[in-house]
Simulated scan of single mutants.
Amino acid sequence: MQSTPQNQESTADRTRAHRTPAYAGREAVLVRQRARRSARSESEANKLAAENLDLIQQIVNQVATRYPRHVDRGELWSAGAMGLVEASRSYKPETGVPFGRYAAIRIRGAIIDSTRKRDWAVRSLRRRMRELHDAEEQFEAAKGRKPSEEELAEAIGVPLDEIHSRKAASVASSLLHLDQEDQDRVSLGERIRENTPDRIPDEHLAEREMIGTLRTAIGGLPELQRDVITRYYLNGEMLQSIAESMGVTEARISQIRAEAVHAMRSYFTTMYSDVAEVPEDAPGRRNRAAYLANMATKSTWLTRLQAAGPPAASHQAAG
């Protein structure tokens, strides 16, 4: 019987349909085997790392003596932990090397690499500083006291100026963490007081808001009160001078000033808890109520901050 193209095609289709599942089945088996090996190796690696956590602190204690006291031991431990994890993943038992010995090398290397990345001082500088430190320790062990700079220079065999330059370089190369705590658990950042408020974000923001609040309060006053407050408090004019220029008595200007101050103080009490309340019977009660209602609709935190102007301008105004 002669096969037709249709018969040939259907035979080929049946052949492919028959072969494909077997091939796919073998691939699926291989994939599952690899997945089980991967899961098993990851589980074994995690177990190795967990069983050897104490090794990290041992290595940290060994290498910490090479670094100044300001170097954070916690950061050394973290770097060592990364080294231990990498060691557990790359360890091959068939080499015959005990895991503890292999991991110790990787942990020590990870710690050293991490400190080198954070250290901007060149190796030659570190070598000269270490030579100076070793000479100081040897002299103190032999003589029972700290050496003078002249004695250090003689011990190392360098001019006195070289001792001065090495100590200066040592100070400049020591980087301290502001969040590092001392024995009283107080951070270095808390010990150091910043005398320039605009360098402290939260304090600078609070200062700008206060300046903007003051400007907003003055700007919201009626024109006559605003003019008196500006001329008396900001321009330093005397009440008598203001009264003469306006053609009124000094007592009237004093009354306008008092009403304006009461209105502004009432506004400040809505934002600051340490501002004293204005007495209910203080002069200008009706105008004060209208002023507060107007400020409540027009004043927001953002508008007050914008009223302070650019940071540089607000800092100059504060000064």
Results as ranks from 00 to 15, higher is better:
145 R>Q: 10
149 E>I: 13
266 S>P: 04
167 K>S: 08
35 A>I: 01
128 R>K: 09
42 E>D: 10
257 R>S: 15
66 R>E: 15
269 T>P: 01
141 A>F: 03
188 L>N: 06
211 I>T: 10
135 A>D: 08
237 E>Q: 15
286 R>W: 03
221 L>T: 11
281 D>H: 08
55 L>K: 00
90 S>K: 03
47 K>T: 13
115 T>E: 09
94 E>H: 10
128 R>H: 12
263 A>L: 09
215 R>L: 15
260 A>G: 14
66 R>S: 14
162 E>S: 11
317 A>H: 11
53 L>P: 01
220 G>A: 12
297 T>P: 00
284 G>K: 05
212 G>H: 06
61 N>Q: 11
302 L>E: 15
176 L>K: 08
250 E>W: 00
20 T>P: 00
302 L>Y: 02
307 A>Q: 07
6 Q>V: 07
267 Y>C: 04
253 I>G: 06
252 R>C: 08
37 R>H: 02
128 R>A: 11
236 G>C: 05
258 A>G: 07
177 H>A: 15
5 P>G: 11
45 A>W: 01
236 G>N: 12
151 E>D: 08
55 L>D: 14
217 A>T: 15
253 I>W: 00
63 V>G: 04
9 E>Y: 09
201 P>V: 08
289 A>T: 15
220 G>N: 13
167 K>C: 14
288 R>D: 07
127 R>E: 13
233 Y>L: 11
318 A>L: 12
79 A>V: 03
116 R>M: 10
32 R>F: 05
118 R>T: 15
61 N>K: 05
232 Y>S: 12
98 P>R: 07
180 Q>S: 14
18 H>L: 10
182 D>V: 04
315 H>P: 02
12 A>K: 09
218 I>Q: 05
262 H>K: 02
32 R>H: 12
96 G>S: 06
196 T>W: 01
262 H>W: 07
222 P>V: 09
122 V>T: 12
243 A>P: 01
265 R>I: 09
304 R>G: 01
285 R>H: 12
219 G>K: 08
79 A>F: 03
145 R>T: 15
47 K>L: 12
221 L>K: 04
123 R>I: 10
271 M>H: 14
183 Q>D: 14
68 P>I: 04
213 T>N: 02
87 A>I: 00
282 A>G: 11
152 L>Q: 07
286 R>H: 06
156 I>V: 14
34 R>S: 02
7 N>L: 07
152 L>D: 09
247 G>F: 11
23 Y>V: 14
87 A>P: 01
63 V>D: 10
74 G>W: 03
267 Y>R: 07
266 S>Y: 05
318 A>T: 11
318 A>P: 00
83 G>P: 05
55 L>E: 07
253 I>L: 04
46 N>C: 08
97 V>S: 06
20 T>S: 15
216 T>V: 10
219 G>F: 04
71 V>C: 06
176 L>T: 12
144 G>N: 06
75 E>A: 10
68 P>H: 09
228 V>Y: 01
58 Q>K: 06
84 L>V: 03
161 D>P: 00
39 A>L: 05
292 L>A: 06
226 R>K: 05
82 M>S: 03
317 A>I: 06
41 S>C: 08
7 N>Y: 06
293 A>T: 15
228 V>P: 00
24 A>F: 02
